[in-house]
Design a protein around this nucleic acid. Sequence first.
RNA 1: GGGCGAUUAGCUCAGUUGGCUAGAGCAGUUCGUUUACACCGAAAAGGUCGGGGGUUCAAGUCCCUCAUCGCCCACCA
Length: 704
Amino acid sequence: MNLPDKYLSPYDPTAYEKDLYTMWEESGFFNPDNLPGDRDETFCIIMPPPNANGRLHAGHGTDMTLKDIMTRYHRMRGKKALFLPGSDHAGFETQGVFEKKLQKEGRSRFGMGREELYNEIYNFVMENKGFMEDDVKRLGVSCDWSRNTFTLQPDVVSRVQDTFIKMYEDGMIYRGKRSIHWNPKFQTSLSDIETKFEDRKTPFYYFQYGPFVIGTVRPETKFADKYIVVHPDDERYAEYDHMQEFEVEWINGPIKATLIKDEVADMEKGSGAMTITPWHSQVDFDLAQKYDLPLEQIIDWDGKLLPVAGEFAGTKAHVAREAIVEKLQEKGLVVEVDNDYTNAVRLCERTGVVVEPQIKDQWFIKMDKLAAMTLESLDKGEYKFVTERYEKIFRHWMENPIDWNISRQIVWGIQIPAWFKDGEIKVSKENPGEGWSQDPDTFDTWFSSGQWPLMTLGYPEGSDMEFYPTDVMETGADLVFKWVPRMIMFGLYLTGEVPFRDIYFHGMVLDSKGVKMSKSKGNVLSPIDLAEEFGTDAMRMAFVVANPPGSDMPLSTDKVRAYKKFANKLWNIARFVYSSFEDFSYDHEDFGNMNAEDQLRVEKFNDVRDDIAKDIEQYRPHLAAEKLYHYVWHEFADNVLEASKNALAGETSEDDRLSKQFMLYQILEGILKTAHPFMPFITEEIWKDFPNKEKNLLIVESWN
RNA sequence: GGGCGAUUAGCUCAGUUGGCUAGAGCAGUUCGUUUACACCGAAAAGGUCGGGGGUUCAAGUCCCUCAUCGCCCACCA
């Protein structure tokens, strides 16, 4: 063969990558139904649906790369390999993003009809979804676009609603007044795990409340507090009886208060006495349920004080705090103020808004049985965690399940198939008749994404269910509670089988100094920019090397640059080998003959290749990639090629020269195949020129 | 308050079941453009693997302990 001209200049990724991706797409090989040969064994990974509200970030880059490596590997191993893409409507988060956009435009969702708002968000998301999919392609991901799924497409919506109906009929779902986390700014409830705590320095007040001194950080909720709680063993209050009543001078005049003795009171804390506000505190709510106490709302849904607050009514609760304290001060009821107190304030994880506990009717899923099922399955070994320490965290969480609030007061999502009429409830997809109106609430996003493996594979009756259970769930460790347990629960509940066998968590991508990437810090690396500057293959290598499962990984442009050099090294290896193949021919009578030394070189490579295969199969892609790098550069290029130069130049014997040719032929073929899952573009490009008699696209070549 | 993890070259990190003469990138030293590659090569330099103790023929790797840092969970009035 003659050396193709393209090897005369350094490898330029941008010149090849786009065409190569198009070539793969047109080949149809991303679709497992089109793969050549008999493939009995399936391999399936479901893409954790990126939120359709923005571009891909470095975390997605790692995520997609790791999954694509596995998919490409198993495809080359002769499996019916499916990497199934999709995107998530990401309900609350997307609506938040969209509302910010409205705000910038000087608009607001208030005053927009439900349908109008939904449609606007829909268009916004569809546009982003397109960008996002372009990004995924840019990363060389070999997923089957013909199976692309979106969580709000009609058939998914319908099937997700079916699950709700089934669970309702099975008694797994109830509607109940519960203390919920309310986001007053975005007007929706949140589940526990959508909130986070932040330590804030807040004055801690001690007030005189009849004969008691009570402590609080939230005076603004105390207007209607009529119950004092102390610990039954607290000797300071031994003289008082459970349910004893008192006349108390309080914020807006005298009230009648009742003492409750219950173990929830902490004797160590402050005076050991507290008053309760059941409407605006979960603990207090539980206590109120226990003693059947009345519930009274103090703060409205917008965060303003209600008429019970008297002169303070209509004021934002947190704003009124100081004025209330001042009034109490005037009345001589302030005993002490501790200005050094640190309080854990509960915030909305996504928006940072301080959540207000409120009482509201919501839909809940009973978690006890589902959690038990999930743990039992884990005990039986039906699924396992690649990084064991996550199993501990997971277990702990599953052992203490909290009922899951699945209703959200937002428009962007799957509407709950429940209907109300005069206090009656019917659950169905269709309108039950005259006078019924559908619950305006939508499902928590995780209710639908929890069913993602099922929905994408066409549960209940789709033919793709042959891919279920899938092989591995590879995702970010932050989803250990949010997503993973829910998929397992839904899988077990609906099909009796887990949705995946192995759970592989990758860590967060950090910047070069180990700091979390964030837009506000300006340290974000976009995978698309990296791919443009250094090439996708280089970026993929940088995402994988030294990135063991379960720990965070710092990423720098230097690291990506290093693998760009590696790509060029590979390019030049091909240049050298091909240029020594001038007279290479299959028909040569000595084709296939190697001397012992060269035989050994091939065997050494085969060992490395097998080692890499083992690493991929056992979820050590970081070691696999490093071994590949090391072998190609420091063994093949530095030693094997160097040792071949004399012979190839004809300075030894003709036998030796032919032996070297065949040895290089063998090893280069192996290197291209081994490297392909990691660096799909450059390997496929070099493979085009490989002097093989009969060959497929590298993407469907056999691994060994 | 409970749980988990980290501590390895100047910097950022790998090191799978104990077998290591402890590796990679970047930074830095010296030399080299003889046709695969300057997006390069060669040669060196850099580490008592956080401290202390233990198990073992053998410990960066397992156990105990201390120190520092980080993450997660929790109904901290």
